[in-house]
């Protein structure tokens, strides 16, 4: 299938230009999506690694400690 598609492309050398435009569109879409994200959600996500072992935890021998 690809053979037919690609062999029928007139001027394959335009591929870099086409792909540049393709990426630009993709980039703009991602940018808009990221910009429109809720601020509270962004804050929550940013804190995830710090939150991840905030929970009271205990090691195998049972003594409790709080990390971070």
């Amino acid at each position: 299938m690809f053979r037919q598609i690609f062999q029928n492309i007139q001027g394959i050398e335009l591929l870099p230009t086409f792909t540049l435009l393709f990426f630009f569109t993709f980039f703009v879409a991602v940018f808009i999506m990221a910009y429109r994200l809720d601020k509270k959600f962004i804050n929550y996500m940013g804190l995830l690694p710090l939150d991840s072992d905030d929970t009271l935890n205990e090691n195998k021998s049972g003594d409790e400690n709080v990390t971070n």
Binding site: V30, A34, N43, G46
Partner: peptide, 12 residues
């Protein structure tokens, strides 16, 4: 011990 500077930027 602080969050990443911009989570939005990390998505992009």
């Amino acid at each position: 011990n602080r969050p990443v500077y911009s989570y939005r930027l990390s998505i992009i």
